[in-house]
Computed example of a mutant assay.
Amino acid sequence: MDAGLAAVLGAAVGAIGASATALISGALGRSQTRLQLRAEGDRIVDEHRRSSYRDLFECTETTRAHLGEARSSLSQMFDDEAPVPGDQMAVADVLQERAVAAVSAAEEKLAGIPRVHAAVAIQGPEATQAAATALVEALRQELEHTKRWTVAVQDGWSDWDEYEKRAFEAHHSATAHSLAFACEASAALQRDGSRPEPRSRRWLRRSHRDRSR
C-alpha cells in the first residue's frame, strides 16, 4: 500500500471514528436526560404520596379529637363521682353545650375529608387505599353514633345509655381502623424508601461518580 492510499484510509477511519463518537455522545446525552426526568418523577410521586397520607391522618385525627371531647363532656354529666361545684343543673347544661359544639366541629372537619381521601385513593397503593376507605367509613359511624347520643341526652330519651354504648363501640372501631391505616401508610412509605433504587437513579449516581474520578 503506497503512502497516499494509507493517508486516505487513515483519514476515512478517523472521520468514521469521530462520527461514531458524536453519535454515541448524543445518544448518551438523550438517555441521561430521560433518566433524569424519570428520577425527578419518582421523587415527586413519593412526595405526593407522603403528603396525601399526612393530610388524611390530620383530618381524621382532628375529627376524632372533637368527638372525644363530646364523649368526655357527655360522660361527665353522668359521673356521680365527679366533683360538681355550684348548681349541678347549670354544670350539666355547660357540659351539654360543649358536647353539641364538639360534635358540630367534628361534622365541619369531616366535611373536608372527601378531598383528602380522594388524594390517597389516587396515590395508592391498593392496601393503603382500602385502609383509608375503611377508616373514613368507621369515622362517619363514630360521628353518627356520637351525634345520636348527644341528641338522646339533650332531648332526655330514656334509652340514652344504649346510644352511649353504640358511640363507644364506634369509637373503638374507628381507633382500630386509624391504627390500620397508619400501619399501611407507614409500610407503603418504607417500601418507597427501601425499594430497589430505580435504574434511572442508579445510572445517574454511577455517571456522577465516574465523572468525578
Score class of each variant (00 low, 15 high):
D2H: 11
D2P: 13
G4E: 11
L5E: 11
A7Y: 10
L9S: 03
L9Q: 05
G10T: 15
G10R: 01
G14S: 11
A18K: 00
L23D: 03
S25C: 02
R30C: 00
S31Y: 04
S31D: 08
S31W: 04
Q32P: 00
T33D: 03
T33K: 13
R34P: 04
L35P: 02
L35F: 06
R38W: 04
A39R: 06
G41Q: 13
G41L: 13
V45A: 10
V45Y: 01
D46L: 08
D46W: 00
E47D: 06
R49A: 02
R49D: 05
R50A: 08
Y53A: 02
Y53T: 03
R54K: 06
D55N: 09
D55I: 03
F57W: 06
F57S: 12
E58Q: 10
T60N: 01
E61P: 00
T62F: 11
A65H: 10
G68H: 04
G68M: 10
E69G: 07
S73D: 04
Q76G: 14
Q76H: 09
E81N: 13
A82V: 07
V84F: 12
V84H: 14
P85G: 07
D87L: 10
D87I: 13
Q88T: 05
A90I: 11
V94W: 07
L95A: 04
E97M: 06
V100A: 12
A102Y: 06
S104C: 02
A105H: 12
A106F: 09
E108P: 00
E108H: 05
E108Q: 06
K109W: 05
L110Q: 10
A111C: 03
P114Q: 09
R115V: 14
H117R: 12
A118M: 07
V120Q: 02
V120H: 03
I122M: 12
I122Q: 02
Q123P: 00
A127V: 10
T128S: 15
A132M: 07
A132I: 02
T133L: 09
T133H: 10
A134F: 03
L139H: 05
L143K: 03
T146W: 01
T146C: 06
T150S: 10
V153L: 12
Q154L: 09
D155L: 03
D155T: 12
G156V: 07
D161S: 14
Y163I: 01
E164M: 08
K165S: 09
R166K: 09
A167C: 03
E169D: 15
E169F: 01
E169C: 02
E169V: 03
A170M: 08
A170T: 03
A174I: 00
A176M: 05
S178T: 14
L179W: 04
A180P: 07
F181E: 02
F181V: 04
A182N: 14
A182T: 07
C183H: 15
A185R: 04
S186I: 02
A188M: 05
L189S: 09
Q190H: 13
R191H: 12
R191F: 00
R195Y: 01
P196M: 08
E197I: 15
R201V: 03
R201A: 11
L204E: 09
R205G: 00
R209D: 15
D210I: 04
R211K: 15
R213K: 13
